[in-house]
Amino acid sequence: MKPTKKEYDAMTNKASPPSPKGKNSVFAFLIGGAVCALGQALLEGYRAWGADLETAKTLVSVTFIGLTVLLTALHLYDKYAKIAGAGSLVPITGFANAMASPAIEFKTEGPVTGVGVKMFTVAGPVLVFGISASMVYGLILWVIGLFD
């Protein structure tokens, strides 16, 4: 008396504990928020240091990217992301980690076929669809501009 796929799916769902969504959401909110607050503090700091707003914004991004790559290389970022969850994903840090981690992982396959090719395995889709979306929106903006 073998169960059908549907029956087995129900059995599996019953046997499989769900992810702790409440806890994950709280940690993502708190840590993600803290990262953004840190970003704001950095922005104010760079401003106080004499940078104009645009330069200060760029410096904040560069700081986060640098920090993430450093933490990734020290094998600490994955431990942080395990706790922070989506909070580590939303800010610019998630993207930097997605680029840095395959670069470290695949250096055994050489600088070209390893690092060069595999660096985009995780972040590649973000670039493809991000750029595609910006083209679509650019087109919409251009069409609207024709009627102005």
Binding site: Y77, S101, V122
Partner: peptide, 8 residues
């Protein structure tokens, strides 16, 4: 994923 990729 790569070992150092951050995820849950």
């Amino acid at each position: 994923q790569p070992l150092d990729y951050g995820g849950q």
